[in-house]
Write a protein that binds this DNA or RNA. Structure first.
Length: 426
DNA sequence: TCTGGGGTCCTAGGACCC
DNA sequence: TCTGGGGTCCTAGGACCC
C-alpha cells in the first residue's frame, strides 16, 4: 500500500501559521510578479476565485470579500516544506518527496497496523510539529492513493483520511470520480475521453487495454493498470539528478534596452550555475530566451531564443555567463518591450565523471589547471553567500537594475532570515 | 496597466551508421 | 517495375505534473 500525504492549500497554510488572524478569512497567494492565484483558502475557493486565474480580473471580488492577498514567498514555503517532510520521514523508511507539498510513503509491512489510526496519527503529528494541515489517501497503487487523497479532501465526513482497499470500495470511488480528476489525465485526454463516452475513472479502468495503449500511449496505459490495482509506478526513494535546470522571471515593467535585459540574463545565469553546483552537475548546453507578453497585439510580439554548446561542461558562473551573453546578442531585437526572460541549462554531466575530462579541440589552457581555479573561485563564492546571505558576492553584471519583479504583498521570511524576524519584532 | 515558474516523459521523424 | 535490414542519436512537439 502507498500513502499520499498532501498539505492542504499549502502556501496559504504557511502564511496562516505566522498570521493566525487569517484563519477563517478568505486568503490567496499570487504567482511571481503578482499575476495569478496559485493557492487559495477554502473560503477563497467558495467565493469563486479560480486556480491560475489572473488576479487583476478579480479585483472587485477581492475587495468585496476582504480577501487577504500575498505575493509568493518561496523562501518561507520551501523551509516549511522541509519541516513537514522531515516529520513525515519518521513514519516510514520509504519516502518519495513528490512536490513541495506532497509526498508518497511506502507502507509495505504496515498491513497489520490499523492504517486509519496510523494516518490520523501522522496528521496530528505534522500539525503539532509545523502547524500545517495535511490530508492522507491510501491505496494499493500510487494512482489509487492519489484518488483516495482527493476523496479525503473533498468529503468532510472523512476528516482528512481515506483508504481504498477492498474491491468494492475502489469500485465505488472510481465510479464517483470524473475522469479528468484521475492523476495523469489532463485537459486534452479528458476532452478526448468524454467525446467517446468515457466519463468516470471507472469507465477508463474498464476500457479495452489495447485501445487505451493506442490512444493514450504508454503513460495512459499505466494509469489504467494502476486504476485496476496493478502497481506500475514505483516509489522513487532517491531523487534522480535533474536533466534540465531553468531560471526565468516575468518583469514588473517591460524591458526594452539590451543592457537591462543582459542584467536580468546575468542574474538568471548565476542562479542556474548555483543550482548546477548544488546538484553536483555540469551543463554542456545553455539556452537563453526572452519574449514579449503573449497577450500583446501580434505585431508587438516576439519570442527570441538561442542555444549555445559550451564545448566542455561547466558549472562556473563566469563561463556560463560568457555563453549567455553570446546567446542573447544573437537574437536580441530592438523595438520590443520584453516581459520575460530566462536561462535553461541542459546536457548534464555529473561532476568528476570521465565525460568532463574531454579536452575541447581548440583549447589552449590545460584543462586541469582551468578546472582547479574555476572550482576554487566558485566554492569561495558559494561559501560566502551561504554564510552572509544570497547575493552578498556576485558577478559584476548581475545587478538588479533595468528589471524588477512586482512583489508588493510579500510576507517576511519568518523562518530563514534574521533581519526579517527583527523587523517583525520591531 | 495587470495573465507564473518550474519540471518530466513519450512519440515521430529525420539524419546518420554498418 | 524493380531498390534490405538492422540499429542509434537527436530534436521538436505534445502530453502531463505541481
Amino acid at each position: 500500500m502507498f500513502a499520499l500525504v498532501d498539505c492542504n492549500n499549502f502556501y496559504v497554510s504557511c502564511e496562516r501559521i505566522f498570521n493566525p488572524a487569517l484563519c477563517g478569512r478568505p486568503a490567496v497567494v499570487l504567482s511571481n510578479n503578482d499575476g495569478c492565484f496559485i493557492a487559495r483558502s477554502e473560503e477563497a475557493k467558495a467565493i469563486g476565485l479560480g486556480m491560475g486565474a489572473p488576479a487583476f480580473k478579480s479585483q472587485a471580488l477581492l475587495r468585496r470579500h476582504n480577501v487577504a492577498v500575498y505575493s509568493a514567498n518561496f523562501a518561507l514555503y520551501g523551509d516549511m516544506s522541509a519541516r513537514v517532510m522531515n516529520t513525515l520521514a519518521t513514519f516510514s523508511p520509504d519516502i518519495e518527496i513528490y512536490s513541495i507539498d506532497e509526498c508518497f510513503l511506502g507502507l509495505d509491512g504496515f498491513g497489520r497496523f490499523d492504517l486509519e489510526g496510523y494516518a490520523r496519527e501522522i496528521c496530528r503529528t505534522v500539525h503539532r510539529h509545523t502547524g500545517i494541515p495535511v490530508s492522507i489517501g491510501i491505496g494499493p497503487t500510487k494512482t489509487l492513493a492519489k484518488a483516495a487523497n482527493r476523496m479525503a479532501k473533498k468529503n468532510p465526513v472523512l476528516a482528512g483520511v481515506a483508504i481504498l482497499r477492498s474491491e468494492a470500495d475502489i469500485h465505488a470511488a472510481l465510479g464517483a470520480m470524473a475522469v479528468e480528476h484521475v492523476w495523469g489525465i489532463g485537459n486534452q485526454y479528458a476532452a478526448f475521453l468524454h467525446e467517446r463516452g468515457v466519463h468516470t475513472a471507472l469507465d477508463l479502468a474498464r476500457l479495452p487495454a489495447p485501445w487505451v495503449r493506442r490512444h493514450l500511449h504508454i503513460t495512459g496505459a499505466r494509469v489504467q493498470e494502476e486504476l485496476n490495482g496493478r502497481s506500475c509506478l514505483a516509489l522513487e526513494l532517491v531523487r534522480p539528478s535533474k536533466q534540465t535546470i531553468c531560471t526565468s522571471r516575468s518583469f514588473g515593467t517591460p524591458v526594452s534596452d539590451y543592457d537591462g535585459l543582459l542584467h536580468a540574463v546575468a542574474h538568471f545565469t548565476s542562479k542556474c550555475a548555483f543550482k548546477l553546483r548544488r546538484e553536483g552537475s555540469k551543463a554542456s548546453l545553455l539556452t537563453v530566451f526572452a519574449c514579449t507578453s503573449p497577450f500583446a497585439p501580434k505585431k508587438e510580439r516576439y519570442w527570441g531564443t538561442r542555444t549555445i554548446g559550451l564545448g566542455e561542461a561547466s558549472s562556473d558562473a563566469i563561463v556560463l555567463l560568457a555563453a549567455a551573453e553570446r546567446a542573447l546578442a544573437c537574437f536580441f531585437r530592438e523595438g520590443y518591450g520584453y516581459r520575460k526572460a530566462g536561462v535553461i541549462v541542459a546536457g548534464m554531466v555529473p561532476c568528476g565523471s570521465p565525460g568532463q575530462m574531454e579536452l575541447a579541440l581548440f583549447d589552449t589552457v590545460p584543462l586541469p589547471e582551468k578546472q582547479i581555479s574555476s572550482g576554487i573561485v566558485m566554492e569561495a563564492l558559494d561559501r560566502l553567500n551561504a554564510r552572509y546571505g544570497p547575493g552578498t558576492v556576485r558577478l559584476a553584471s548581475d545587478v538588479r537594475t533595468g528589471w524588477k519583479q512586482r512583489q508588493e504583498l510579500l510576507s517576511p521570511q519568518y523562518t530563514t532570515s534574521w533581519n526579517d524576524i527583527i523587523e517583525v519584532k520591531a
